[in-house]
Write a protein that binds this DNA or RNA. Structure first.
Length: 496
RNA sequence: GACCCCUUCGUCUAGAGGUUAGGACACCACUCUUUCAAGGUGGAGACACGGGUUCGAUUCCCGUAGGGGUCACCA
């Protein structure tokens, strides 16, 4: 498809809950389509159900879109504020015979449905007031206004994703346009607003497919041109069913919390149902350039957390160190105020190039760097504990003295010095690096040990090493470890 | 139940009437290596089934099965 300047898309959530994965992807596709064609992307809140719509949900949706980086054009349209316009359209339809008053009570309708279902059919309104004389209206019943839908023939939808889809008009009933209290229903509001807003393309979930037929009929009755519809497949949970609260983390905010980058989220959502050959890592500029509806799949997709994390890892690695620092600084500073100082930021930045190749989420990234701010003596993981055996402690003592005398303190110099030290000891580098890692980080796994030493700085490195030696000394003294010939009060000094 | 949609490795997907059916995640092995990752190399792994159409179908058509969606004075 060629860029089409007149494109107007919209994301039209009903503010009854969080912005979930499905809605986020619908928003993304509408946004991408508009941006790709140089058109505009509008936001409309479908809050005609006053009982279920909440300001909290509105806030959550806006926050979600903001996080995803999906900006809309123009002002937000609140459907509830357009009630009068909707009602007016319904009245004009009524005046022209395109709609009629129905005096059925909810009980009557329920009975009708039960009957239809029992007879093995679809639970449709049978149109009993369609041609009935309003003079027969029962007293005291406020009528609803129903659309006089065509009963013969079929309605064909040229869906941009699903292709041509047709349905017998007999399979559709006369939907309610205006409730008994005079408020418009969703079905009416969408049509009027899509028309008034000049929406050219309605991209939405597959679950709206049957609505499209009804809406198309309404458009025609009003003598308006319906937008082009594109019904994208739903996102399913791991069990293959439509995503819902019971699937756990479906609100986009939950992904922000676990440290997913918006760029990664967009990438993941984009690849669910849309593809561009074998491309997997797609940034937003490319997405805008490449996105079009003809490459959208028709089958539903399941959301894969593992793949999101992998994608997130890629996007983290491609992020600037300073951007990542800004992301994790608050997370780190919550437990370690030093992290928010120049000194702290310096340490984080020094290790960022190393750390970012290892993290799949910002949470992991922050966690992997937290040791920088732990106070010696460091808490040791069991594996780290095991690395610091008597022999290792002795070597660390000797290493401590060597490092104390070392000129300069940069990564390359440290690496050279420690390698030389290992050689002098007649052991592989691992025999030195691992205990050293345990002593400096409290863990058996960390970024490269020389980068860690450089980031920590000479003083802190020595303090941490010393702390380990002191503890070791105390343990030997109290007989906590079986003393070997190397075990003396201070392994460092003993070696000398 | 009625109507509508869908069906390629476990998952997301590419693909063409004739391909060794490609990639990514996950998995396994090897490699790199100071650890863990990342990276590199390799491996295992799919066209739901049955009929057609055709010289040839995984690809086109029709069924079947399976999955999903919709059937409100909700959106």
């Amino acid at each position: 498809m060629r860029p089409h300047m007149g494109v107007v898309t919209r994301f039209a959530p009903s503010p009854t809950g969080m912005l979930h994965l499905g809605g986020a992807r619908t928003a993304l596709f509408n946004w991408l389509y508009a941006r790709h064609h140089g058109g505009s992307f509008r936001l409309r809140l479908e809050d005609t159900d006053r009982k279920r719509s909440t300001p909290e949900a509105v806030a959550a949706i806006l926050e979600g879109l903001d996080w995803l980086g999906l900006d809309w054009d123009g002002s937000i349209v609140r459907q509830s504020e357009r009630r009068e316009r909707h009602a007016e359209v319904a009245r004009s339809l009524l005046a022209g015979g395109g709609a009629y008053r129905c005096y059925c009570t909810p009980e009557e309708l329920a009975a009708m449905r039960a009957e239809a279902r029992a007879a093995g059919g679809s639970a449709l309104y049978d149109g009993r007031w369609r041609d009935r004389d309003p003079a027969q209206a029962p007293p005291g019943v406020d009528p609803v206004i129903r659309f006089r839908a065509p009963r013969e023939g079929e309605t064909v939808l040229g869906d941009l994703v699903q292709g041509p889809v047709r349905i017998d008009n007999a399979a559709l009933d006369d939907m309610v346009l205006l409730r008994a209290d005079g408020t418009p229903t969703y079905m009416l509001s969408v049509v009027v607003d899509d028309h008034d807003m000049g929406i050219t393309h309605a991209i939405r979930g597959d679950d709206h497919l049957t609505n499209a037929f009804r809406q198309t009929q309404l458009f025609r009755a009003l003598d308006w041109e319906p937008p082009a519809y594109a019904h994208i497949p739903l996102i399913h949970g791991p069990d293959g069913a439509k995503l819902s609260k019971r699937h756990g983390a479906v609100a986009v905010g939950a992904y922000a919390d676990i440290g997913i980058l918006p760029a990664a989220m967009r990438n993941a959502l984009l690849r669910l149902g849309w593809s561009h050959g074998d491309d997997e890592i797609i940034d937003t500029d490319q997405a805008v350039r490449w996105f079009d509806l003809d490459a959208v799949n028709r089958g539903a997709a399941r959301f894969d957390m593992e793949k999101l994390q992998s994608l997130n890892g890629h996007h983290i690695r491609e992020s600037a160190d300073s951007a990542l620092l800004a992301e994790i600084e608050p997370r780190l500073a919550a437990n370690h105020p030093v992290a928010a100082t120049d000194e702290g930021r310096g340490r984080i930045l020094a290790l960022m190039p190393e750390a970012k190749t290892r993290a799949k989420t910002l949470v992991e990234l922050a966690d992997s760097l937290a040791f920088l701010f732990h106070e010696p003596p460091l808490a040791m993981t069991p594996k780290a504990e095991r690395l610091l055996d008597i022999e290792a402690q002795a070597r660390l003592g000797a290493l401590f003295c060597m490092l104390e005398e070392l000129d300069g303190w940069d990564e390359a110099g440290l690496e050279g010095a420690v390698r030389a030290f290992a050689e002098g000891e007649g052991v592989g580098l691992g025999k030195i690096a691992q205990p050293l890692r345990a002593a400096l980080t409290g863990s058996h796994a960390s970024p490269g040990i020389f980068a860690v030493m450089a980031a920590l700085g000479r003083e802190e490195t020595l303090v941490r090493l010393h702390a380990v030696m002191v503890i070791a000394g105390e343990r030997t003294a109290t007989g906590e470890h079986v003393a070997s010939s190397a075990g003396a009060e201070d392994p460092g000094r003993n070696e000398r």
